[in-house]
Amino acid sequence: MAHQIRVEVNGEVQEREVEARKLLVHFLRDDLGLTGTNVGCETTLCGACTVWIDGQPVKSCTQLAVQADGTRVTTIEGLADGSKLHPMQEAFWEEHGLQCGFCTPGMILAATALLDTNPNPTEGEIREALKGNICRCTGYHNIVKAVQKAAQGGASNG
């Protein structure tokens, strides 16, 4: 049975009919064509699908689209200000914080959410905050550097 949902995604209101069981990540990818959000494990364990719901990081592979009804969702496509990169995106580029890039959208959104609550994290706090996001390429070394750099530049959204 289809359900009507209304979600603000990256600033645009989307009104769609979805099956009750449709996952939020499939709604974003298949229905809205926002393929920047990746699926790595379907079990909340890898973090590739991290998006923000009302500003909070959430793993969209284990949320139903209907649960997002009435919320504000931000995906990686909505992070930059037009053609101007978000400082966290800039920092990942500058510090070589990505290789294959598959975990990167989720990693950037998780890292940015950290700086919203803790604008000057220690290395240990960064590593603790990102432990739900798996990167198999970088060994996290340059991801940590990128977050530190973004923090120095004042990259929180707050």
Partner: peptide, 21 residues
């Protein structure tokens, strides 16, 4: 040199196999 691959990947515009329909 900064990677030329990155602008697409950090903005979610990079296209992986499952992204094609």
């Amino acid at each position: 040199v900064r990677r030329r691959e990155d602008p697409a990947l950090i903005t979610g515009k990079g296209k992986y196999t499952d992204d094609f329909c």
